[in-house]
Amino acid sequence: MRGKGILIAVAIAATAIVSGCSTTGGTAFVNAYGAKNDSGYALPKIPVSKIDRQFRRQVVSYETKQRPGTIIIDTSAKHLHLVLGDGKAMRYGIGVGREGFLWKGTAKVGWKREWPTWTPPEPMIRREPDLAKYRGGMKPGLNNPLGARALYLMRNGRDTGYRLHGTPEWWSIGGNVSSGCIRLMNQDIIDLYERVKPGAKVIVT
């Protein structure tokens, strides 16, 4: 009986491993969203139970011909995949552009910044005049729209104006909420920042 019990336990564990690496649900980082101190800023804990599981950071099966280190963004599914190789990717939940602000194409990561300054572009200031006070830049902080990290996207040697960045508004992940930039939870953008190098290819579909 004891041997039979061991075999059943092994079978259950094997099933969990296989199902944990499927394209619909992966190996989630369940302790990834706790409070932490980052460069002197106290990032609050994210109530992960309130976030749909598909938008939590996880390793998933992902077949692609793109090389490891490539970022592939699916704006319809609200997923960002970082290609790991060997048929795997790190998947993050994202918030994307509102109607009229969606875009697609290929770019690359030009440069990266920790706790970046946010400067609203002139078209945004014209739409929202109250933002004029930040024309010279909004200092970094917990309420800064770019969050804890930002990756700046370039195309043909020029700044696209689009960013992959953090957000304090964790509840917005999975929605059409931005003016074209791709937002991640602060704990996720910190993780992505550490994994991605300047020059990385970014594909937005």
Score class of each variant (00 low, 15 high):
Arg2Glu: 08
Gly3Gln: 10
Lys4Leu: 14
Ile8Gln: 12
Ala9Val: 15
Val10Asp: 12
Ala14Ser: 14
Thr15His: 01
Thr15Leu: 09
Ser19Glu: 10
Ser19Pro: 00
Ser22His: 14
Ser22Asn: 07
Thr23Leu: 10
Thr24Gln: 15
Ala28Phe: 15
Phe29Gln: 08
Phe29Tyr: 06
Tyr33Trp: 10
Tyr33Gly: 12
Gly34Ile: 06
Gly34Ser: 07
Lys36Thr: 04
Asn37Ala: 11
Asn37Gly: 14
Ser39Lys: 13
Tyr41Leu: 02
Leu43Met: 04
Pro44Asp: 03
Pro44Glu: 12
Lys50Thr: 10
Ile51Arg: 06
Asp52Thr: 01
Gln54Met: 01
Arg56Met: 09
Gln58Asp: 03
Val59Arg: 05
Glu63Tyr: 00
Glu63Ala: 02
Lys65Glu: 07
Arg67Asn: 04
Gly69Tyr: 02
Thr70Phe: 01
Thr70Trp: 01
Asp74Val: 00
Asp74Thr: 09
Ser76Tyr: 07
Lys78Thr: 15
Lys78Tyr: 13
His81Gln: 00
Leu82Gly: 04
Leu82Val: 05
Val83Ile: 10
Val83Trp: 01
Gly87Lys: 05
Lys88Thr: 08
Lys88Glu: 04
Ala89Cys: 08
Ala89Leu: 02
Met90His: 00
Arg91Trp: 08
Gly93Tyr: 05
Glu99Phe: 12
Gly105Gln: 11
Ala107Lys: 02
Ala107Ile: 01
Ala107Phe: 05
Val109Lys: 04
Gly110Gln: 07
Gly110His: 04
Gly110Thr: 04
Gly110Cys: 04
Gly110Arg: 05
Arg113Gly: 06
Thr117Leu: 00
Thr117Tyr: 13
Pro120Tyr: 10
Pro120Thr: 10
Pro121Trp: 12
Pro121Thr: 03
Pro123Asn: 07
Met124Lys: 13
Met124Tyr: 06
Pro129Arg: 05
Asp130Lys: 01
Tyr134Val: 02
Lys139His: 03
Pro140Lys: 14
Pro140Phe: 14
Pro145Ser: 06
Pro145Phe: 10
Leu146Cys: 11
Ala148Asp: 01
Ala148Cys: 03
Ala148Arg: 04
Ala150Tyr: 10
Ala150Gln: 02
Ala150Trp: 04
Leu153Gln: 03
Arg155Pro: 03
Gly157Ala: 11
Gly157Leu: 10
Arg158Gly: 14
Thr160Ile: 07
Gly166Arg: 09
Pro168Asn: 13
Pro168Lys: 13
Trp170Ser: 11
Trp170Leu: 07
Trp170Thr: 01
Trp171Met: 01
Asn176Phe: 11
Val177Ile: 06
Ser178Thr: 08
Gln187Ala: 14
Tyr193Asp: 09
Arg195His: 15
Lys197Gln: 10
Lys201Gln: 06
Ile203Cys: 14
Thr205Ile: 13
